[in-house]
Design a protein around this nucleic acid. Structure first.
Length: 785
RNA sequence: GCCCGAAUGGCGGAAUUGGCAGACGCGCUGGACUUAGAAUCCAGUGUUUUUUUAAACGUACCGGUUCAAAUCCGGUUUCGGGCACCA
């Protein structure tokens, strides 16, 4: 008889809503966090479910292990996609966002996860973004938030500035448009001040290696030296950064980025036209062309520098293959040992001097014969003695471009006063509310739509009272998500971002579950925020997420699910057809949780069949209670041991297959014994509870309990009672399987070997046994000739 | 170009880390129950040879270590991901 999942699931969902787990207990805490969703209009698909089911299984397992859990949920609801969607639908982002939230919340409830909905947060709620703005003000006060006019990544489609992290390869992360450069005044966060700590503290984290590596590469620390090159006939010095000071004798020219500030002074009159033209064309090149054109271009300034070690005159060139915002924006070129310099030298016919041969220095005066690692050190020392260089460290990490010229974001709480300059909004006046406007569409000019709202923009300076203007840029979507995990500890607090006592109780996050796509952006920003809040005494920990788990993506037709590709599988119908418990277990069964996998509805049948079988098995045997037999006891211990281990290793796909396997065996044993012992019956239901919570609750009640199964304790196993009385020994000859025997567990090695010989008598006849290999409880292998 | 991963039946995947390859599930084939179907149950299901018994081969490819290799080592191919003019 099939079980009625829809009735059972409805019944227990209602029960849980009215019977929430107790709070403020003395139990140890477990803070398990899902990356909060951006509430998209298209809702959740089965790929989203995967992570949420995984974290819920973990939470329910921890509840049974005696933990008090924090498992909250909220909405990362500001940002461009929400705004673009609202524009498309001709509605206000607040309205469309709320609709999406209601839909996604409904879908999330279908999972029956143990979310604490009393702690729900929303980044667009003024009571929330008050504190997003407050953190910004603290950064401003510490000099970490600053304004700068600079060429920035501009997405002509999104009509917004992008952070470097959002514009990888010169392509907009969001819409795929080619990013151009635009000169704009922007707010920046000095994340570079934290580069070293962000790098070093990765060591402390239990994160996937891959993610750590990605952050490490993004921070991009490199060691080298800065070297001063004097310009002939001019009182000028060009400073370069190099990771290869050992090759200094081979530096035969210098190249400056087109944006280098000394270009004007360096350019000789007869080169001026050419130089101006080159700089113009370089800046007109789109970001992506500049990055991808491997063909070198450049122009000679007319000036020469002196190589401080060879004392030779070397020409100073300009080329866009040198980046203005890394190192000093100028490089020394060693065409013999650098491919890019080589290309440039070939193209413009510049001298090439090799200084290393097979790792040994040549053409380098006193350093000849050293290996290049030693030479690195020695030459750097010499530069330091001469006072023209020193050991230097550089990072690829740039400061975080923090302002966006769009409507749907947190207003930056700064006032521009003609007399006082930048004035922070008084903390007591927070939040600076995002005004409701008719027209929130982005502009072509790079000015925020907020700039058009006069009665919002025009204010009195809080310092001097003069007429002043509000900052009209808003924060990027990352602002709200950089600290939300703190707010969950105390989501309704109106006097601080969270009560320090509650922060101490719950933080840091013990287990963070989400997709790999945030490996650099969100996870780096959140770590930066946490370190800053640590520095100003708001939190007492340095790293927000101790353990990170990235669930693999679920594909359909080998492609990532997306509405535009039309390959989205919605969980809604599947829940109706198979029930929540079946879908939960199938989400885990599809494959190892950390790997990508292909979705196929068909497999859910198998899980539903298993749950049916389990239901029927328990219904049949619940009244056939017998004293535990040896066989049942061994089976129970083995099962508890296996299932527990597999959960601890997060091998949840094999937990599900384990349940199937054990149940099949159990049914057989119970049939033979004509009953089941109550201990085993309980253990099996409790262990299934994190996976199929509704069915387990129902069964728990069916076997005569009147409390929730989640008030029980996770079963324990007896290590000394897991071994069957007999064991199967594989018999091999020359490593090939020939037979196997079932022997008493207590037999000695010699007894087993003689049994094996007996068993393989005909095969061994006339052969010479060279070696007998015996692996206890596993194998006997005869090496024969 | 550099740095990571991965590759196992028709399919998703398993293998206690060197010890019976293919657990578990899907699909498929046959059977039972049905007027019939659905559902359920039973049996079979890596390839090849063999009537059976059985044997050989088999974890992307080539080679090596070992009594024993999906697992370790060297090389190759394909796919996926990250970074990429960062000096």
């Amino acid at each position: 008889m099939p079980y009625n999942f829809s009735e059972i699931e409805k019944k227990w969902r209602t029960f849980w809503e009215n019977n929430k787990p107790p709070k403020n207990t003395n139990k140890p805490k477990f803070y398990c966090l899902d990356m909060f969703p951006y509430p998209s209009a298209s809702g959740l698909h089965v790929g989203h479910w995967r992570g949420y089911v995984l974290s819920d299984v973990l939470c329910r397992y921890k509840i049974l292990q005696g933990f008090e859990i924090l498992h909250p949920m909220g909405w990362d609801a500001f940002g461009l996609p929400a705004e673009n969607y609202a524009i498309k639908m001709k509605t206000h982002p607040r309205i469309s966002t709320n609709e999406s939230i209601n839909n996604v919340r409904r879908q999330l409830k279908e999972i029956s996860a143990v979310y604490d909905w009393d702690r729900e947060i929303n980044t667009t709620d003024p009571n929330y973004y008050k504190w997003t703005q407050w953190i910004f003000l603290q950064m401003f006060k510490k000099g970490l938030a600053y304004e700068k006019k600079m060429p920035l990544n501009w997405c002509p489609n999104c009509k917004a500035v992008l952070a470097n992290e959002e514009a990888t390869n010169g392509v907009c992360d969001r819409c795929g448009s080619h990013v151009t450069k635009k000169m704009l005044r922007q707010w920046m966060l000095k994340i570079t001040d934290y580069a070293e700590r962000l790098l070093n503290d990765l060591k402390l984290l239990n994160w996937p290696k891959k993610v750590k590596k990605m952050q490490e590469d993004w921070i991009g620390k490199s060691f080298g030296a800065s070297v001063d090159f004097k310009i002939t006939d001019k009182n000028l010095t060009i400073k370069v950064f190099t990771t290869r000071p050992d090759t200094l004798y081979g530096a035969t020219f210098l190249v400056l980025a087109p944006e280098h500030e000394l270009i004007e002074q360096l350019t000789l009159p007869n080169q001026k036209n050419l130089v101006d033209e080159y700089i113009k064309s370089a800046s007109a090149k789109s970001y992506v062309n500049r990055m991808s054109d491997k063909e070198k271009t450049g122009v000679f300034t007319g000036s020469f520098a002196i190589n401080p070690l060879t004392n030779k005159k070397i020409p100073v060139w300009i080329s866009d293959y040198v980046l203005a915002d890394y190192g000093t924006g100028a490089i020394m070129c060693v065409p013999a040992h650098d491919e890019r310099d080589f290309d440039f030298a070939k193209k413009f016919d510049l001298p090439i001097t090799p200084v290393i041969e097979n790792g040994i220095m040549i053409n380098s005066d006193e350093f000849n014969g050293l290996n290049c690692d030693d030479a690195k050190e020695k030459i750097t020392q010499k530069l330091e003695q001469l006072g023209i260089g020193k050991q230097t460290v550089n990072y690829k990490l740039r400061d975080w471009i923090f302002s966006r010229q769009r409507y749907w974001g947190e207003p930056i709480p700064i006032i521009h006063c003609p007399k006082c300059g930048l004035v922070p909004v008084d903390e007591k006046d927070l939040p600076v509310i995002l005004p409701d406007v008719e027209n929130y569409q982005p502009t072509e000019t790079g000015e925020s739509p907020l700039a058009a709202i006069d009665d919002w923009v025009n204010v009195k300076c809080p310092k001097c009272g003069a007429t002043a203007k509000r900052e009209t840029n808003t924060m990027p979507q990352w602002a709200g998500s950089s600290w939300y995990f703190l707010r969950y500890a105390d989501p309704h607090n109106d006097s601080c971002l969270a009560d320090p006592k509650l922060l101490k109780k719950w933080l840091p996050v013990d287990y963070y579950v989400g997709g790999i796509e945030h490996a650099v952006l969100h996870l780096l920003y959140a770590r930066f925020y946490t370190k800053f809040l640590y520095d100003i005494g708001v939190v007492d920990f340095n790293e927000p997420f101790l353990k990170l788990f990235n669930q693999g993506m679920i594909n359909k037709n080998k492609t990532k699910m997306s509405k535009s590709k039309g390959n989205v599988v919605s969980p809604d119908e599947l829940v109706k057809k198979y029930g929540c418990d079946s879908l939960r277990m199938y989400e885990l069964f599809v494959g190892p949780p950390e790997l990508d996998c292909e979705w196929n509805d068909n497999g859910i049948d198998g899980v539903l069949r298993f749950l049916n079988k389990f239901w029927n098995f328990i219904c049949e045997y619940k009244d056939k209670i017998i004293e535990p037999t040896k066989k049942l006891t061994i089976m129970r211990n083995k099962m508890i041991f296996e299932i527990t281990n597999r959960i601890e290793n997060l091998s949840l796909n094999t937990v599900v297959s384990g349940f199937m396997e054990f149940t099949n065996n159990f049914i057989e044993i119970c049939k033979n014994e004509n009953g089941i012992d109550s201990q085993t019956l309980s253990a099996i239901i409790i262990m299934l509870a994190p996976f199929a919570p509704h069915l387990s609750e129902e069964l728990w009640q069916t076997i005569g309990n009147n409390k929730s199964v989640f008030e029980e304790k996770w079963p324990t196993y007896d290590k000394n009672n897991m071994q069957d009385e007999t064991v199967n020994i594989v018999l091999q000859i020359n490593g090939k399987l020939r037979s196997n025997i079932n022997v008493d567990i207590n037999l000695s090695k010699d007894e087993i070997i003689s049994l094996a010989k007996e068993n393989l008598k005909t095969r061994l006849a006339g052969k010479n046994i060279l070696k007998e290999i015996y692996v206890p409880n596993k194998i006997v292998n005869f090496v024969v000739k």
